[in-house]
Design a protein around this nucleic acid. Structure first.
Lengths: 228, 228, 228, 228
DNA sequence: AATGAATGAGGGTTCATTCAT
DNA sequence: TATGAATGAACCCTCATTCAT
């Protein structure tokens, strides 16, 4: 059982195969040189986006960073939106690499929860800049707003199933609606991560303490019995 | 004791007297006509912002909506940023009107918590469009990003004091750091509100259920004794 | 009776009140200065269009000619199409000025026809450059293509009525369908004008000879009795 | 005698051997594969031109249609102008195929005229799209404008000779200048064809009626004796 | 104060043509 | 010859801000 997202497939907890709408992507370049150029542009775009934000990033900033002409940009992407989708796509593939796959389902639900939260928070921290970007883009672009929403909902549904399971096994507060509880708790974790890793807080916070806190509140919140 | 924000002073839970940095505002107009014109512009701006979003709102949209000339805009505001600050300022003042003042501190901490959450969520719902706007502006404008951060932190600090108090009284989990617990739980509520009222969810959710859920998880999360 | 267009209302023979779709035009400027600037832009546009053609005319050419900034162009027009419509509009108004109104309906149908053709051809010659332009634009822009078509058809319908009338009076070949005959003869005149005044011919042609020829063929073509 | 163009050599009535200036064409490809590739490109170009018009046709549209690379285009053609010339050239060769050669010069001038007009109009109808294209290109490209003009003049000259001949034989109005009359009547036919087959008319027109009308007016116009 | 026209830097996008492979 | 990526001049259009009236 995994009540939170595993870091292995995404940051926002979604188990869906692709982070981005494939409709946003065009066919891959024919030649090897083309593939390289495309990659360079994506890398440059990520750099520029993280440096200046999505809105302030000009296409010429990206091509300058990639050391190529304006025209080349349009060989591979239709516009800023499309290259941003590509940046997300690549970032997601990178995330898959570290592997670790599914979390081992030890007998102890609390331990599972903790490991799962840790993995999620680590991924979030690693990709904090990209998360901030996604947040910005979502406020601006309908496509990505919808993307974020869908994935958030997927996350919540999955965790809701976990909670319902715990309730059946008699180890979670039966008076809570699983969907609403999941919405609250899942949101708690992602918001915590955002506030700490992206927005920044007054005083630095120890990473282990974060994991401990969200896990304990999660457990408390569901009235997990017998821990401590 | 109030562990969450009361609706009477803000939406993001901040207890500070003014929502916006006074430095962003200029002195009020001398004549009465001037004051009216200023108000009309602010009302128009709010309308346009809520309709088109901050970024897509052109200053001419606002003056057109206010039925005044482009030039007049600059008589009262330096730029879009400044009129947005004024919109927030006015909205905050409107919030104060309904009154209700401080929540009555009954003896029952759970009841207080519930009333407090209800008030917060109601305020959020009423101002959902503005909250969405603030979210957008914060990703774009350093000033408002900082504003939002400071107010969020203030909120968290206040709730942290409440939690510490409950711990002293022996009715909250002593193993939780008050600040971190507050950050988690406060974030949970505001995130829930955002996800339900702004972002929109798959299926409509009953308002009382929302209040019930966040309150119960909050109580559970702190290991509130003896409720239900 | 007038079987061809009178020069007083248009070049292509259309009796319609406005040459251009009013939907293409926006409201008139509020101030006098605005009105002047708009006129200057239209005059400049006509100059540039006639010099370089519609397609090769860049907006900056027009603003440069009008000695104003790029932005000013967009204060008055949405794009090249719109200012071209304005050019036509103004040109048409200029055409109306010279007056002469309806041709006097003398008793002699041949004389009427000749006067009418003369007026049409004179107008065509005076506006030859604009006619060439319209021809170009019609091959490029759906809106103006349709405009030209509609006006041509109106021209043809009007002349068809004249022919039918002559048939009833027994002075035109009854074996001709009025609409088709009109289409043929009206087209003959406009084509002749185009070929002589716009396209240019190998050897210069005397204007009176042109009038004589088209009128005589028109009369012959309808089997006008008793002339010469 | 043929007073109008025969369909066997061109659409615009020109009797010239080649529709296009040979200077526009380059030498034929050496290899057989090259020749095929060239043909494919021309066919693709015609398709694209007829679909999108000359101006909106991008070279990549053509190469995509021909399933070949951008670079290959420049192996066979210098630019859009040149491939358009090739399209015309090929189209003209196709026209020659059906044969039919010269029209039989029966004794009856009216019958000859009718057959000749029918052939012309049929050819026009068959190639309506190409005619529309040529019209567009002529407004844009000096080379093709001149081409069209020269061919039109050739057409007119030929018909003028026919008219002069009829006058000498005493069966055509001697008061008409042959050149001007030819210019008027030839223009009448081509304009009619354009208006009916390219531009489109309000109501559909029967083909035979068209032939009848232009022929009768032509005969009437020249004061052909004794017909009907 | 009010008006609304004037400004022009700045960014996005296209596509014919060239060039390395 | 064939390929398809690379180039960049050229042009359109937006809109915050200024300014003359």
């Amino acid at each position: 059982m995994a009540t939170t997202a595993s870091a292995s497939d995404d940051w926002d907890g979604a188990p869906l195969p692709s982070m981005v709408n494939p409709a946003l992507l065009r066919e891959t370049p024919a030649t090897q040189r083309g593939a390289r150029r495309r990659s360079e542009l994506i890398a440059a775009a990520r750099k520029v986006f993280e440096r200046s934000g999505y809105l302030d990033a000009r296409l010429t900033d990206i091509t300058k960073e990639a050391k190529c002409s304006t025209g080349s940009f349009y060989t591979y992407f239709k516009n800023k939106e499309e290259i941003f989708a590509a940046v997300l796509e690549v970032a997601q593939q990178e995330m898959l690499h570290p592997g670790m796959g599914r979390l081992p389902d030890s007998g102890d639900p609390y331990a599972v929860m903790e490991a799962s939260n840790r993995a999620y928070l680590e991924a979030y921290r690693r990709n904090a800049k990209l998360m901030a970007l996604l947040e910005q883009v979502a406020t601006v672009d309908q496509t990505f707003r919808e993307l974020r929403r869908r994935r958030g909902e997927a996350f919540i549904h999955r965790n809701a199933r976990g909670i319902a399971d715990l309730q059946k096994r008699g180890i979670a507060d039966p008076d809570l609606d699983p969907m609403l509880a999941s919405r609250a708790l899942s949101g708690m974790v992602s918001r915590f991560a955002f506030s700490v890793f992206v927005r920044g807080v007054d005083h630095p916070v120890d990473f282990d303490e974060i994991v401990y806190t969200v896990t304990r509140i999660w457990a408390n919140g569901l009235r997990f019995p017998g821990h401590r």
